[in-house]
Amino acid sequence: MKIIGIITILLSGSIMIYSTLDFPEWGDPLSPANTHLSVYYIENSMPDTSVPNIVTAILADYRSYDTMFETTVIFAAGLACFLLLRNFRKKKKEYSLYRHIPTGVTLKIKNSADLADDTKLFQRIDSTWVPFDLVTRTASGLIVPFIQIFALYVIAHGHHSPGGGFQGGVIFGAAFILFAISYSLRESLKIISEKTAVILSCVGVMIYAGTGLLCLLFGSNFLNYGSLAQILFTDPVSARSLAILFVEIGVGLAVAGVMIWLYYNISSSGKYNQGL
């Protein structure tokens, strides 16, 4: 298999490297990719949408139909992961570990579904138990709120600086994943449960599609934000800029929800009893 692989990549790679001789020079402003469509975007995105970041303007306005289905693809990936891994059945052999806090003795209890997780004397632990780590928990507890505020800033400031819904949503999800790693999966499930994460991602996709439907309602094409000026009390150009913000918020919610959902499923392999 190794020899076949080496022969294949050498053949195809030499053909590909030979084909680079016909490519335009790297960084040539007059290459075909740089002269047709993108010139229109660079010249007209500011008068059309009043958004300085051209990438955000194209992403959420000119090509917003594309972005809507990219968001749907991400949601579908979260759903596929859930359907593959989620395990609702509790096996009879399933046991959980409880640690007696004063002595440190660990008990293995079968059929422990109706027992409380944490009492004064007993504490439920994962199969790979690590001692209480003050430094990690305090540091991550201090840093998580700031990461979340930064994520909100990235979503809201995507018009003027690099950033937007995708990045902000991923950072928001990553902050919560940091919390879930430094504490435990059960404690993070108390804050954002599986149901909340799913509802978050569904609401995000629905905000996006709902903005498009609202445009239909006011008598223009799907996702043509200019007609929203009637309810936002502004001119059509500012209405586009505001509608891009709504859409980015929807994308951010969807991506954050799906990231948390994927982490729950992969780290506990679908059982939701213990995490990383």
Partner: peptide
């Protein structure tokens, strides 16, 4: 490509590493 670099820094270096390590742990 600042937007793409930002996305890759948060997605590729952040979340996908966590997913890979979680899957390897399982």
């Amino acid at each position: 490509a600042v937007d793409v670099a930002f996305t890759e820094a948060s997605v590729g270096a952040g979340v996908s590493t966590v997913f890979l390590i979680a899957a390897i742990f399982r």
